[in-house]
Design a protein around this nucleic acid. Structure first.
Lengths: 235, 235
DNA sequence: GCATATTTGTCCGTATGTATA
DNA sequence: CTATACATACGGACAAATATG
């Protein structure tokens, strides 16, 4: 039952974040630092996050660190095993399938409800598409992925439901963990930029049903691609 | 800026839960105790939960108690204000509206997907209806409310999505806070038992679309009734 | 507006229990 | 089975923010 330990390098790298800790609630700032370390793949899925090592490196007490762990646990980025500690979440193929099942449920229902041109309310979607195009031009694939996530987050905002927004935020945070199985992010995200633009065009015309169909095939394809990558990696 | 203090009685009442603390993780057991105290209306919405008073009454340290608070915060049962402490959540009319918006989204999508008789998978729904009938006979209105919640939780389980289940669990936990504006729980929950039976009958026939229509009007009526009670109470 | 008391935020040291080599 | 490492939980301490008179 091997559980990968954090590399010495990963712990040492935390030192540079030390200065960032100095504004609001310590536990939340701590969670911010760890969250980006995880979603950027710095801590790989499966690694154990040692209370002592991280607390020592960042200069915070274990009590405070544990509060930060609680926050990240509820975001599903780490898992907590009693008396064993916390580990960076490892998603299974079933998780990916469920993630896309719920995305389809929420995103499709949201665009389906669009029956007339939303006008200015599409501004965040336009901004996300533009950020994506910019990132693609600069061949900045990580940013392209971020822009894609922003687009779909903004899409759900059209429903005007705070709770739906929050659920979606959680789903997309988990999805970032999945994206790290894609060693070559370029061919993955690039085509979806075009498809986002098509969805946006349909919404602009108030054609929610058309947008739903585009979105459904978008999500089906993405899911297929990701689960295939997962299975290939499981060799 | 008055914040209702906990009554002496409420603190003293906690002592009886002391013996229950003795199995798994202290913070989680602690959260279990507090959760039932809150959802059963023992701690009314808006009351501040004093670290010292509760920790003292239950015989746990402040650090452990704070971990339990974190858990409940993420269940949205309490809210945390920096340097002020934690308070039992007070839901607004907007919250109720959002709660029902998301319920409609999830529950309707779930039953709509039913196209053939689910057979044995309806067993938990049948059990919830029977528990409701039993509670109604015994005029046990609290249990009737619990059975209603169980029915709708079981309904969503038909979708076979762990994440959807969890979202629904959270929504229904919040809803319990809302039910406490209903001073007379009897006339509220009773008619919905009949409607649950109708929904169950439609599902048994594999008529997902029919069940969706019944469910939609169920949720519309419940929302109207609750928001009306809220507004009346705000005088 | 000011001073005081209360309460939370954060940290430390330590004892105990649990998992694993 | 023993030893080690680690998480769990407690109690105490002080700083910082807030509430109260």
């Amino acid at each position: 039952m091997s559980t990968d330990a954090m590399s010495i390098d990963a712990i040492a790298g935390l030192e540079s974040d030390r200065l960032l800790l100095g504004r609001t609630s310590t536990a939340e700032r701590l969670a911010d630092v760890l969250r980006s370390r995880i979603t950027e793949g710095y801590f790989e899925p499966g690694t154990r996050l040692s209370e002592e090592a991280i607390g020592g490196a960042l200069g915070v007490s274990r009590n405070t660190l544990r509060e930060a762990f609680r926050l990240l646990t509820h975001e599903r980025l780490i898992v907590h095993e009693l008396n064993r500690g916390v580990f960076v979440r490892m998603l299974s193929v079933q998780d990916v399938e469920d993630l896309y099942r719920v995305r389809k449920l929420i995103e499709c229902a949201t665009v389906r409800a669009v029956t007339e041109p939303p006008g200015e309310r599409l501004a965040p979607l336009v901004a996300a598409v533009e950020a994506g195009e910019d990132a693609a031009l600069r061949r900045s694939w990580r940013e392209l992925g971020t822009a894609d996530i922003r687009f779909h987050q903004a899409l759900v905002t059209l429903a005007g439901s705070p709770r739906t927004d929050e659920v979606m935020r959680g789903l997309l945070a988990e999805l970032r963990l999945v994206f790290y199985v894609m060693v070559e992010p370029e061919p993955f995200h690039e085509p979806y930029l075009t498809r986002n633009k098509e969805i946006l065009a349909a919404l602009r015309n108030g054609d929610g049903r058309g947008a739903e169909l585009l979105l459904e095939s978008y999500l089906d394809d993405a899911e297929r691609q990701l689960t295939a990558a997962y299975k290939a990696r499981a060799r």
